[in-house]
């Protein structure tokens, strides 16, 4: 369905200085300044917020879901994940605690 309303801006909010901006949704607005004004009430009136970004949706280039197989792993790459590493010492300690309990 085509969108007959004002242009769409994607909205990112930041809950505290130094935290990352997180995507929260979108607003329709005539221009960036109006998008900020409307985004404030849509996405920052109930929770902590110190900063908002608005980005015209056209500025975003997205990958295609048809191509989502590019994210699949052909071989075991668990070594790239932190959970891919076994931490036997910690495990042994917690096992020990259970036995002593």
């Amino acid at each position: 369905m085509t969108d007959s309303q004002w242009p769409v801006f994607e909205v990112f909010h930041q809950q505290a200085r130094g935290e990352p901006h997180i995507y929260v949704g979108s607003v329709h607005a005539t221009d960036p300044e109006m998008a900020l004004i409307l985004a404030k009430e849509q996405y920052a009136r109930r929770q902590a917020c110190v900063n908002i970004w608005v980005v015209p949706i056209e500025a975003i280039t997205a990958s295609r879901y048809e191509d989502d197989d590019i994210f699949e792993r052909g071989t075991d790459k668990s070594y790239r994940e932190s959970w891919g590493y076994v931490t036997p010492k910690t495990t042994q300690q917690s096992d020990q605690k259970k036995e002593n309990a």
Partner: peptide
Amino acid sequence: ILEEDIAFSS
């Protein structure tokens, strides 16, 4: 528009 409805009500 919806966004304005929410902002004005708030």
